[in-house]
Design a protein around this nucleic acid. Structure first.
Length: 873
RNA sequence: GCCGGGGUGGCGGAACGGCAGACGCGAGAGAUUCAAAAUCUCUUAUCCAUUAGGGUGUGCGGGUUCAAAUCCCGCCCCCGGCACCA
């Protein structure tokens, strides 16, 4: 560990100041270069920097610096996602105003982020809780409203009892609140929505542009979330009441097999259907029980299928047959039409339901050469087969007849072919204070009136009370009471605020023009700077932020405000930071210091038992590699790490072990290794400077060198080539670092052997390593670069170029195999032809010996790779 | 169940048709030191011979090929996402 921590921090500060002075991270630094917008997801200002931020912003910063070295004009902004619940909860707890709480946290985190040395253009900083930002949320809302894309409607919504607010579908995980983990209930409420479902198909189509540049998994998650399915809408009629009951099905081929129909418990028609039933009360009680039984994943998964017969029947339009009409707990009001035609023979859910309630099962699809018997079936038959009992479709293969059936249904007036999406409208209302007020006024005479553009922003009032029971905004008289902009009558203001995902749906646009007071941004500036060339963030935003932002961008494009419809050209998702956590059966999670390891090896184990608990003495403490978290007592404080080894060593370690999209394992000893690597590099520079043998020249002709120096020079160019490919091929910084280590090891080995290294070659080697590693260890690279006599920043030195000629080997060693097993090695010219390779291989003494008296059937030679002899005894 | 990503030494990982284990961590031995830390050198997949060499090895079972961790077929396991979606 470093002895000169003071020194390290001085060096870091010195160079951060220098970069600031030279405007390294300002747009226009490489003003003739092609633009490159590198964006790391902005943080919520929690007040504490955690390792997730560190990996995210380190990757972003390395890319920024790499692009700068490659001559790009880089845009690297940063800001704050500063509206949201934690500030408000803190206000309820401590009485501190959310604004003060937020500003304090922003100040703390700015300090931490600056200290980390991440290159952001702070002149472009935005905070979404400032009214010069959120006023434009309101402005966009008005535009959406004009276009009919913002709408207030009463709908069953997700309500979190603990957060006291509604949640968007995307914010409900396994039936619990994504934020606080408590149960989410369904409630009918009148709420504001953005009509995102209208964009389902476009969101899906847009993926074609992103494929190859976005992680496959994120695209897959979005596709799943949007949930397109093709099928048909068919209108059934209720025999008893004459009501029309449309259903959506993806299996119109089974429509002749309908034996009952399921309605969602929330279906609006239920009350009317059972109005005349003698069992009315009883049925309604069961329906209510179904509605009440939770929506949490656990409930759903183990929930048995239950239902109640309404006493009514539906008429199947295709054959006029009657079928019982049931209410069933597995039918969802939120998908399709809330009514499902049930074909128990060919759908597993319907099958289970029919068996339970003794409803007939009718076969309409038969596996080829078999005859299904409804009484003996143990599960639904869902594979392809031959249609039977299906009128004119009998004898056809169901999967091939799908479109014919849909055409027939449409032509006969029974329904139509249709596409259904799982994606629903985006609920943006939140019953909270710390967010953007929705700019709407309710007038007793004029109804819902949008706030005129000229009256924006609608500011958050300060005369509010935070008690924790309901929306604090409602406690502000000055806010709620207003006059109608249309007629001047006394009116009430909307007290719902916007989901904070509205803020993050366009912050990347504001970064292009952060100070604009006349508009959210200037279109021409956006045309120059957008789209984001490289976006970096966590995968947890796959179906929330990344869908909302794409939707928002498409709407702004339709409104003519921007000229592109996909905001993020390339997306990179970093892996989680994990660390071994220890657990004792008695004492639960343990700090590593409370574990008595059974042996040295146990210290590096990432699973199984490792030793004794120091607290209670119990044996069998288990180790587990898991995401860093407070509860598992395996957190790492970035600030402490920076103090101990400096930010560069932390950065180097974060990137050196695994590719950055994989899980990162945090270990103290690994960090020490990174520190050692840096120390060796610094030592090497110092030794050369002290020796006085280092040349001032950094160009050297290979022809003037002896073999050893020539070799060193060649390895240097091979290193440049390999590193460039590793970075361009998907940010494989781990192998890039490994290549530099190899080169440094080689140099130090020669130095140790007191070899006669040419001073010019030494300079080339050292400077190449520094120029390659400077995006990763920027402060110390600059420091060494300066020591080597440079008076301009290393970041103006450009990315080193590999000289293909110099990188070429004069001879290479390749293996000679006999029947696929390596038996000897030979030296050949890298461009030796097959014939000469064969000759050299066959002339090798060891090969001669081994093939003596054998028949050589075949000699395979792959130029530049290997020779294989096929031999039989 | 479906979708995505994985399974390689004690550990993180490299190689992605052509020498398996780069680089780093850990461990062992030695050098230096009064001593420790730091640093440096060597060893480190495994088994047999241990001098030379030989066998076995990339989750499991098959296949293609002169050659497979890599390609194909069939399984198993781990991580992440979705899941009564009609």
């Amino acid at each position: 560990m470093p002895e000169q921590e003071e020194d390290l921090q001085q060096i870091e500060k010195k160079w951060q100041k220098k970069w600031e002075e030279m405007g390294l991270f300002k747009t226009g630094f490489n003003k003739d270069g092609e633009k490159c917008y590198v964006l790391s997801m902005y943080p919520y200002p929690s007040g504490v920097l955690h390792m997730g931020h560190v990996i995210n912003y380190t990757i972003g910063d390395v890319i920024v610096r790499y692009k700068l070295l490659n001559g790009f004009d880089v845009l690297t902004p940063m800001g704050w996602d500063s509206f949201g619940l934690p500030a408000e909860n803190a206000a309820i707890r401590t009485g501190q105003h959310p604004h003060d709480f937020t500003e304090k946290n922003i100040a703390t985190m700015t300090r931490q982020m600056t200290r980390a040395g991440w290159g952001f253009d702070w002149d472009r900083e935005v905070a979404t809780s400032h009214n010069d930002y959120y006023r434009w949320n309101q402005w966009f809302f008005l535009k959406f409203y004009e276009k009919g894309l913002a709408e207030k409607k009463t709908a069953p919504v997700n309500w979190c009892e603990s957060c006291m607010t509604v949640l968007a579908n995307e914010q409900v995980k396994d039936g619990t609140c994504e934020r606080c983990g408590s149960a989410v209930i369904q409630k009918d409420m009148s709420q504001w929505f953005f009509k995102m479902s209208q964009y389902s198909q476009r969101l899906l189509d847009g993926h074609d542009k992103l494929r190859g540049n976005w992680p496959e998994s994120v695209i897959a998650m979005q596709e799943e979330w949007i949930g397109r399915s093709e099928g048909a809408k068919v209108v059934f009629k209720v025999k008893e009441t004459g009501d029309e009951l449309p259903i959506f099905t993806t299996r119109p081929d089974t429509i002749f097999g309908v034996t009952f129909m399921s309605l969602a418990p929330e279906h609006p028609l239920i009350e009317k259907l059972i109005a005349d039933s003698p069992d009315k009360e009883k049925i309604m009680a069961e329906v209510k029980a179904m509605r009440a039984s939770g929506t949490s994943a656990k409930d759903l998964a183990d929930k048995e299928k239950v239902g109640v017969f309404t006493g009514c029947h539906v008429i199947n339009p295709v054959n006029g047959k009657e079928a019982q009409l049931w209410v069933a707990n597995f039918a969802l009001m939120s998908y399709g039409t809330g009514a499902v035609m049930a074909v128990p023979a060919h759908d597993q859910r319907d099958f289970e339901f029919a068996r339970k309630y003794d409803i007939p099962i009718k076969i309409v699809i038969q596996p080829e050469g078999e005859t299904l018997n409804p009484d003996e079936m143990t599960e639904a038959y869902t594979a392809p087969g031959i249609m039977i009992n299906s009128a004119q479709f009998d004898g056809k293969v169901n999967t091939e007849s799908m479109s014919d059936i849909i055409t027939w249904i449409a032509d006969s007036g029974f329904g139509e072919g249709t596409i259904n999406y799982r994606l629903r409208d985006w609920l943006i209302s939140r019953q909270r204070y710390w967010g953007t007020p929705i700019p709407v006024i309710y007038c007793p005479d004029c109804g819902t009136v949008p706030v005129p553009e000229s009256d924006l922003p609608v500011l958050l009032p300060t005369d509010v009370v935070f008690k924790g029971d309901g929306n604090p905004l409602e406690t502000s008289e000055s806010f709620v009471n207003c006059t109608c902009p249309k007629c001047g009558a006394a009116a009430k203001r909307e007290t719902d605020t916007m989901d904070t995902f509205v803020d993050s749906s366009w912050y990347f646009l504001r970064f292009c023009d952060p100070k604009n007071t006349n508009a959210p941004f200037d279109k021409e500036l956006l045309n120059k700077l957008m789209p984001v060339d490289q976006y970096i963030g966590g995968i947890e935003h796959a179906t929330m932020h990344l869908i909302y932002a794409r939707f928002f961008t498409m709407v702004l494009n339709d409104l003519g405000l921007i000229d592109f419809d996909e905001p993020f050209k390339r997306l990179f998702c970093q892996g989680m930071v994990c660390k071994t956590a220890y657990r004792c059966d008695n004492c639960k999670w343990l700090y590593i210091d409370d574990v008595e390891f059974e042996n040295e090896e146990a210290k590096s184990k990432t699973g199984g038992t490792v030793g004794k608990c120091k607290k209670c003495g119990k044996d069998g403490v288990s180790a587990e590699m898991t995401k860093i978290s407070k509860t598992k007592l395996n957190i790492v404080d970035p600030d402490k790490m920076f103090d101990r080894v400096g930010t560069d060593a932390v950065r180097l370690y974060m990137l050196s072990d695994a590719p950055p999209d994989r899980m990162q394992v945090w270990s103290e000893s690994g960090l020490n290794g990174a520190w050692r690597t840096i120390s060796r590099l610094r030592l090497t520079v110092d030794e050369w400077l002290e020796s006085g043998n280092l040349s001032g020249e950094s160009t050297v002709a290979a022809s003037t060198l002896d073999q050893q120096n020539n070799d060193l020079l060649r390895k240097t160019h091979q290193c440049i080539k390999a590193v460039t490919e590793a970075i361009e091929g998907g940010f494989h910084f781990n192998t890039a670092i490994a290549r530099c280590n190899e080169l440094l090891n080689l140099l130090r080995q020669l130095m140790g052997a007191k070899s006669d290294i040419d001073g010019r070659v030494a300079r080339v080697v050292i400077e190449t390593i520094l120029r390659i590693l400077c995006p990763i260890i920027p402060h110390l690279s600059e420091d060494m670069w300066e020591k080597l006599g440079h008076n301009k920043s290393i970041f103006t030195s450009g990315w080193p170029e590999a000289d293909e000629e110099l990188a070429k080997e004069s001879t290479i060693e390749i293996p000679v195999q006999i029947n696929g097993k390596v038996k000897a090695r030979i030296n050949i010219a890298p461009d030796a032809d097959i014939k000469s390779m064969q000759n050299i291989a066959l002339a090798d003494s060891r090969i001669k010996e081994l093939t003596d008296g054998q028949n050589i059937f075949k000699v395979i030679a792959v130029p530049g790779k290997m020779v294989n002899l096929v031999v039989k005894g």
